[in-house]
Each structure stands twice: as C-alpha cells, then as structure tokens.
C-alpha cells in the first residue's frame, strides 16, 4: 500500500469537512478498500474513517414503520438486530462473507461501493429502500446507476438506509465458488402494493429489477408464475465462473427459489 493520512472523526460534520479535501476518500468497514490499497490499486492522500461516528450506527424502527439502519452499521449487527423486524434482510446480512467480514463491513460501505456482485444492493433495490445521506434522500430506484456507480456525489456519506418492511421476502444467493460473492443473487419482496425482484451478480449494469417477474408475481406469488418467463442473456456478465447464458438461467431459478422461500 502507498502512504496516506488517516483521519477518524467522531461526528458527521467533521467527516464531511474532511472529505472536502483533495484526494480524500471515505473508509467504511474497509472490506473492499483495504485489499485494494494493499494491492496498490488506489492511492488516496487521505482516508476518512467513518467507524468513529456513532450517530450513523444502529438499527431502529421508524414511526412510519420503516426499518432504519445507520450507514455505519456492520453486517453482523444487522443480522442480529434486524431479525425480529425484517428477517429476510437479516438473513441476507448473515450470509455476506465470513464472520470477520461481517464484523467489519458496513451497509453504507457496501451500497456506496455498489459492487455488481454484492448482496446489499439487491436488498435495497428489492425493498424500494431510501438511501439517506448527509445531504439528501435518494430512492433506491434512482440510486444504483451501474457497476460501481451510484447517485452519490464526491464526499457524500450514507448516513441511513430506510427499508419499507414487506409482508414476505427472501434472498437466494448462488455463490461464485472462489470469492463466494453472488454469482447471481435474487432478492424478492412482497408488499401490499406489489412484488419487487432485484437481481445482483448477473448484469454488467449491476443490480437491476426484473420487471416481468415482478408483474407475474404480483398477480400470483408462486414460483409457477415464472414458468413462461425468461431473462435475456444479453448484457449478462460472462467470466471464468459462468457464461451470460448461465447467469440468465440462474436468475430465473433463483427467483423461483426466493419466492418459494418467502412463501
């Protein structure tokens, strides 16, 4: 790794100010950024650690019934504390990485990075969550803008993520054998006003909603409802671990399994 300065503010205001400097970069749980630095693939002048800001940590239920998770909350905390309120989300958090990753990695870090194979983007998009930052609120549908690309501006910090709690939900992840990231992951959530289906791992554009499946499942929330649908392989990721055809096929299989698991 190259040398950098480390700042560890204890308030959001200090963090925002620190991130205003040239070549400053936010550091969440470091589960992506630290390995990147170790390989000398990034050269930030200053790292602003968000781990000292207590105000952006924790899980609580909002007055409007939405589940609120602080941007600095670790996966392990979500797995534990969201379980009673939103079991589908808690189970997703519990399936990320390994215990060490879950103890350090944060929901804000995952969503800000928007790795095309990460789990949380599927939950946020699949739940129609709201991404709250130090500056504004962004609907999940507007937030994800392609692989490693989001609506965040430079220096903008995710402070909170608000999840509408569905009637039923489940996440199905098919693991890539080496990284155990999602080769394909599908998050299905059923709300009173319809079903949302979000797919991670599969597309070159990052997480996306499978609208045909949403329509079909909204009228019949059963795996059977998918039988005449198919996902085009066009635009799917092809790599050592799976062809675009394989990923397109897995999207349908896993959507069906997520529906079965949620039912």
């Amino acid at each position: 790794m190259y040398n950098f300065d480390l700042i560890r503010p204890s308030t959001l205001e200090e963090a925002v100010k620190a991130l205003g400097q040239d070549e400053a970069q936010a550091l969440g749980g470091g589960q992506t950024l630290i390995p990147t630095l170790k390989q000398r693939l990034a050269m930030p002048e200053t790292l602003v650690s968000l781990s000292g800001i207590d105000a952006i940590k924790g899980v609580c239920v909002h007055d409007d019934g939405r589940l609120s998770i602080g941007g600095g909350t670790t996966h392990a905390t979500v797995a534990r504390e969201a379980a009673a309120h939103y079991p589908g989300l808690a189970a997703l958090a519990a399936s990320i990485g390994d215990p060490a990753v879950r103890a350090r990695g944060t929901i804000g870090g995952s969503l800000a990075n928007n790795d095309p194979s990460a789990c949380y983007p599927a939950a946020a998009l699949g739940s129609g969550a709201t991404i709250v930052t130090n500056a504004r609120e962004i609907a999940a549908d507007d937030y994800f803008q392609g692989m490693f690309t989001t609506a965040l501006d430079d220096g903008e910090i995710i402070t909170e993520v608000r999840f509408p709690v569905p009637e039923a939900a489940a996440y199905q992840k098919f693991e890539q054998p080496a990284s155990r990231f999602a080769l394909v992951g599908v998050f299905v959530a059923r709300y009173a006003d319809g079903v949302r289906v979000a797919v991670t791992g599969a597309s070159e554009e990052g997480v996306f909603r499978w609208s045909e499946a949403e329509a079909a499942l909204s009228s019949n929330f059963a795996a059977d409802a998918l039988k005449d649908l198919s996902v085009p392989a066009d635009g799917m990721i092809g790599d050592l671990h799976g062809t675009p055809d394989y990923r397109a096929h897995l999207v349908k299989v896993l959507t069906g399994r997520a529906v079965a698991a949620a039912s």
Partner: peptide
C-alpha cells in the same frame, strides 16, 4: 493469469 487471486481461484 486470470485466476490470480482468491477472488477467482477457488480453494
């Protein structure tokens, strides 16, 4: 080497 890290070489 495409499988040059543990992200792509499965142990």
């Amino acid at each position: 080497l495409l499988s040059g890290t543990y992200m792509d070489y499965a142990m």
